[in-house]
């Protein structure tokens, strides 16, 4: 990867950071589109695995970008990807917080919340869909995915148990 590529990726992450309402999850589909489809830096399966690996490690889920950065450009990639994704949104939040008057019940705030809540459903579903497309390379994995959805909806089990179960059952059941 050339220096120019790295600058381009950093700029793209910084742009995403400044617009991604809906949290870390809303960035997943775009980062996949950009790094897998547009830049061809890794495969869809590798992308899904990086997200899964980052989820299995304690810490904010957004750190999958640290892993992607490290995989594409080593230590500098890890540091720059993380900063690129965190600094713009952090600066915005820092300044918005000073404007926060304690009153979260204004018409504007209620309108933003009411308008964004249904959109968050679609952004989260898109992230799940994009990761499933990369991850489900065999029908057994489609069953893993579907069973996870059902168990999550039916029980309040800690998600980590399910990720652990996936790690154990993968080697046992996959051909």
């Amino acid at each position: 990867m050339t220096l120019w590529d790295q600058i381009e990726i950093l700029a793209h992450f910084a742009m995403l950071s400044a617009i991604a309402v809906g949290g870390a999850v809303s960035m997943v589909p775009d980062i996949s589109r950009y790094m897998v489809d547009e830049k061809g830096l890794l495969s869809a399966a590798q992308f899904s695995e990086a997200v899964a690996l980052a989820q299995a490690v304690p810490g904010p889920n957004v750190l999958f970008v640290t892993l992607l950065g490290w995989q594409s450009a080593g230590l500098a990639g890890a540091v720059l990807a993380t900063l690129g994704l965190l600094v713009p949104s952090s600066v915005i939040t820092y300044h918005a917080n000073r404007w926060r008057s304690g009153n979260l019940d204004t018409r504007a705030v209620r309108a933003i919340r009411r308008g964004l809540s249904p959109l968050a459903v679609g952004l989260t579903l898109s992230a799940g869909w994009v990761i499933a497309e990369g991850a489900v390379t065999h029908w057994t994995l489609a069953v893993f995915c579907a069973v996870t959805v059902v168990v999550c909806l039916a029980t309040s089990i800690n998600p980590l148990w399910l990720i652990g179960l996936g790690a154990v059952l993968g080697p046992l059941l996959l051909p």
Partner: peptide, 17 residues
């Protein structure tokens, strides 16, 4: 093992949505 984890991670996000 990682393939299994990734399929579960996708399911977790779909369930959250």
């Amino acid at each position: 093992a990682l393939s299994g984890m990734a399929a579960v991670a996708a399911g977790l996000l779909i369930a959250t949505a």
